[in-house]
Design a protein around this nucleic acid. Structure first.
Length: 478
RNA sequence: GGGGUAGUAGGGUAGCCUGGUCCAUCCUAGAGCGUUUGGGACGCUUUGACGGCGGUUCGAAUCCGCCCUACCCCA
C-alpha cells in the first residue's frame, strides 16, 4: 500500500516517466508560457554544468572558446543557398527596433555558421593561422512545428555547443572530423551512454555540408535520439564567405571547414538511458552530488553520529568529492527515496552500529550494498564510485545491444521496429529505395558506414530492389 | 500542415449546458506547532484557484469574441 505513495510512473511508460521525472527530480519546469521553451531548475542546471564542464574539458585540449552574437543580419544569413533552404522554415526574425521597422531584418541564430564565418574571413590570413578551432556554448532558436519536448525538441535550444574549424585542405578537415568523432566517443563514455555512429544519407545531411556523421543513442522505447553531429563542410561556406589563406608560395587558397554540435539532448539521453523506476541515476563523473551522507540519529548517540558524519563529509570533500550531509528532520527512509529520485550515485548511511564498526554503509544507486571504512573513506569511495560507473556503463551497453538487430526484408524490418528495435538492413543507397524504406516502415534511415561494436559492416541485396547494398541503420527517431 | 478536446490552488477533480449560499472536494503539495526517526511517520492548525485580454450583465469559473498554452488523432 505504501508502494505507490509518491511513485513515479514506470519507466516502461517512457513518455510519462520522462515528463514526470523532469518535474519531480527538479530538472525542468515545463510551465513556462511559451511553447517549446522550458526553465532549468537549479538542480537540473547543476547537472548541466557538470556535463558541460566535462565537454569543455575535452574541447579545451585543442579548441578555443569564443562567443558570437545571437543576431545575424539577413544578407549574411541568406548567402549560402543550400543552408538557407534547410533553415528558412524555422527561423525567428527580429523585425523591429522598438517601434521602428528595421531596414535589415535580423535572424535569431538557428545555428551560427553565418554569424561566425564572416569573422573567420577576417581572422584567417595565412597558412600560419590554420588550423583554426573555435567553439561556443550558446542558445539557438528554431521554430519547430513538430511536437516540442523538454530537452529533446525545443524552440530555444539553451545549451548548444558548436565547434567550427578551418583547415588548409579537404583531407585535413576530414582528419578533424575523425578527431571530433573521437571526442564525442570520449564524452559519451564519461556519461556512460552507448552511441552508434553513422553517415547520414545525402538528403539528411547538414544544409551546406559535404557529408554529415551523426551520433545517435537509443532511448528506452526504441526510438533513436541524435545526440551529436559532425559535418565536413568542404569549401561551400569558405567560398561563400571568402575564407582564404595565403599559402607558403604566396598564393591565395580557399580553406576547408568542419563544424560539430552537441546540445542538451545529451542530458535527455543521460536521464533516459540510466534512469529507473525510482528516478534519476547519475554517473559519478557528472553527478551534482556524488555521495549523500544520511546520519541515523537516535537518542543519546545523536551527537557522536553527527560528529562522525561531519568528519566523513569533510574527509571526502577535501579529497575532491561532491558530498552532502543530510541533517534534515525527516525519517531516514524518506531521505533515501528523496536522493534516489535525484540520482545521487552513492548513499552513505552512518548510525551507531556503523560507528562502532568504524564503517559506513554504502548503498550504490545501481543497487548493491557494501561499506566503506571511515579511516579510509576517500580511497573506498573512489573504488565504489568507479564500480557504480562500471555497472551503469555495462547496463547501458546491454540495453543498446538488445535494441539492435539485423533484418533481411521489409516485413522483418516492420516487425523489428514495432518491437522497439533499431535495425540494420541492406540498402542500395538509391534515394527512391530509401524513400520507400522510410515510407513503408514509417521510419528513418539513420545512415550507412555504421560504427558500433554490435553492428557488422556487410554487403547484401537492397531490401527494396535487390541490387547490391550496404549495411544501413534504420529506426524511428525523436 | 489539417482536425479535435481541454485549461479551476503545488498536483488531481467536480461545478459550466440552465449566470446568483461556489467560502466545493481529494491528495503523494505548501506553511506552522508538537510528538517522532536503521526504507516513504502521525496529530492538530492553516494557506491557496477559476489560462490571458476584452465584451454582455445589477452580477461571470459558467454566456460571447480574440489570443496563449497543453494533450490526442490524421497527413
Amino acid at each position: 500500500m505504501e508502494e505507490d505513495a509518491g511513485a513515479l510512473p514506470k519507466k516502461q511508460d517512457f513518455s510519462e516517466w520522462y515528463n514526470e521525472l523532469l518535474w519531480r527530480a527538479e530538472i525542468m519546469d515545463v510551465r513556462y508560457p511559451v511553447k517549446g521553451l522550458y526553465v532549468w531548475y537549479p538542480y537540473g542546471f547543476a547537472i548541466r554544468r557538470f556535463v558541460y564542464d566535462r565537454l569543455r574539458q575535452l574541447l579545451d585540449r585543442d579548441h578555443k572558446e569564443a562567443l558570437f552574437p545571437l543576431l545575424i543580419p539577413e544578407q549574411e544569413f541568406m548567402k549560402e543557398a543550400e543552408h538557407i533552404k534547410g533553415f528558412e522554415d524555422e527561423v525567428y526574425w527580429v523585425t523591429h527596433g522598438g517601434t521602428t521597422p528595421l531596414d535589415v531584418k535580423l535572424a535569431l541564430r538557428p545555428t551560427s555558421e553565418t554569424a561566425i564565418y564572416p569573422m573567420f574571413a577576417l581572422w584567417v590570413r595565412s597558412h600560419a593561422d590554420l588550423p583554426l578551432k573555435i567553439y561556443q556554448v550558446v542558445n539557438t532558436f528554431r521554430y519547430e512545428t513538430k511536437q516540442t519536448r523538454p530537452l529533446i525538441r525545443l524552440r530555444e535550444i539553451t545549451s548548444f555547443m558548436e565547434s567550427h574549424t578551418v583547415h588548409a585542405t579537404w583531407d585535413e578537415a576530414e582528419a578533424q572530423v575523425e578527431s571530433e568523432i573521437a571526442l564525442s566517443q570520449e564524452f559519451y563514455k564519461s556519461l556512460c551512454i552507448p552511441i552508434v555512429i553513422s553517415k547520414r544519407p545525402d538528403w539528411d545531411k547538414f544544409p551546406g555540408a559535404d557529408y554529415t556523421i551523426a551520433i545517435d543513442t537509443i532511448m528506452p522505447n526504441g526510438r533513436t535520439l541524435q545526440i551529436g553531429t559532425v559535418h565536413h563542410l568542404g569549401d561551400h561556406f569558405s567560398r561563400t564567405f571568402s575564407i582564404q589563406y595565403e599559402d607558403k608560395n604566396g598564393e591565395q587558397q580557399i580553406a576547408y571547414q568542419t563544424c560539430y554540435g552537441i546540445s542538451e539532448r545529451c542530458i535527455a539521453a543521460l536521464i533516459s538511458v540510466h534512469g529507473d523506476d525510482k528516478g534519476l541515476v547519475l554517473p559519478p563523473a557528472v553527478a551534482t552530488l556524488q555521495a549523500v551522507i544520511v546520519p541515523i540519529t537516535i537518542g543519546k548517540r545523536r551527537d557522536d553520529v553527527l560528529a562522525a558524519a561531519d568528519k566523513l563529509k569533510s574527509d571526502l570533500e577535501s579529497s575532491g568529492f561532491r558530498v552532502k550531509l543530510d541533517t534534515r528532520d525527516m525519517r531516514p527512509g524518506a531521505k533515501y527515496y528523496w536522493w534516489e529520485l535525484r540520482g545521487v550515485p552513492l548513499r552513505l548511511e552512518l548510525g551507531p552500529r556503523d560507528l562502532d564498526a568504524g564503517k559506513a554503509m554504502a548503498v550504490k544507486r545501481t543497487g548493491e550494498k557494501t561499506s566503506i571504512r571511515l579511516a579510509n573513506a576517500a580511497e573506498d569511495t573512489t573504488r565504489v564510485l568507479a564500480e557504480v560507473a562500471d555497472a551503469l556503463r555495462a547496463k547501458a551497453e546491454d540495453g543498446m545491444k538488445e535494441h539492435l538487430c539485423s533484418v533481411a526484408s521489409m516485413e522483418q524490418l516492420n516487425g523489428a521496429l514495432n518491437d522497439g528495435k533499431v535495425a540494420v538492413v541492406h540498402w542500395c543507397q538509391d534515394r527512391a529505395c530509401g524513400d520507400k524504406i522510410e515510407e513503408q516502415a514509417n521510419s528513418s534511415i539513420l545512415g550507412t558506414n555504421v560504427r558500433s561494436p554490435y553492428v557488422q559492416e556487410s554487403d547484401g541485396p537492397c531490401v527494396i530492389c535487390g541490387k547490391p547494398g550496404k549495411a544501413t541503420l534504420v529506426g524511428r527517431t525523436y
